[in-house]
Amino acid sequence: MEFWLRLARSRIAKDVKAGRGDVHIGFALVCRLFITAMDKRAEGDGRIWSDLLQYAEQVVAKHPPRH
């Protein structure tokens, strides 16, 4: 987890320097989505979590992340 957080922070800083400040909004929304999915799963509703994982797997399979 620490690796991905450091990588995300570095990439966000580069995007901000390149004038793409909306990266903060995107990251915040992704974090809120992740937390919402975890909360709903803890409440017994795993649909958002399942959908999130399925979508993420599809995107990453088509567009593997660069390291």
Rank of each mutant, 00 (worst) to 15 (best):
D22Y: 05
W4Y: 12
L5C: 06
V23A: 00
A61C: 07
E2M: 10
G21K: 14
G19D: 05
S50C: 13
L52W: 05
V23P: 03
A8S: 11
A18P: 02
I35G: 00
R6D: 14
G26D: 13
V30K: 06
Y55H: 09
V16F: 15
L33G: 01
R20P: 01
L53G: 06
D39P: 01
W49H: 09
V23T: 06
Q58S: 07
R66V: 12
Q54W: 06
L5A: 08
K17M: 07
E57F: 11
A37L: 03
Y55C: 02
D51G: 00
F34I: 14
V60E: 05
L7E: 12
H63W: 11
E57H: 07
H24G: 03
I35L: 15
K62D: 10
A28Q: 12
I25W: 13
P64H: 05
D39Q: 15
A56L: 13
A37F: 02
F3L: 13
R32E: 13
P65F: 02
L5N: 04
R9L: 09
A61S: 12
L53W: 15
G46A: 10
K17Y: 11
L52C: 05
M38F: 03
E2W: 01
G44M: 08
L29K: 08
A13I: 01
L52G: 00
V23Q: 00
G19I: 12
H63V: 08
L33I: 05
R66A: 08
K14G: 04
G19M: 11
R11I: 02
T36E: 12
Q54L: 06
M38E: 09
G19W: 04
A61H: 08
K62F: 04
I12A: 15
G44C: 06
A18N: 14
A18M: 02
M38L: 15
K62L: 15
A13S: 05
S50F: 06
F3C: 02
G46H: 07
G21Q: 10
F27C: 06
Y55I: 07
D39A: 08
G44S: 08
R11M: 10
F27T: 02
L5Q: 14
I35Y: 13
H24N: 06
E57R: 12
G21A: 14
E2I: 06
D51Y: 08
I35N: 04
E2Q: 04
R20S: 04
M1E: 09
C31S: 02
G44P: 04
L29A: 10
A28F: 12
R41Y: 03
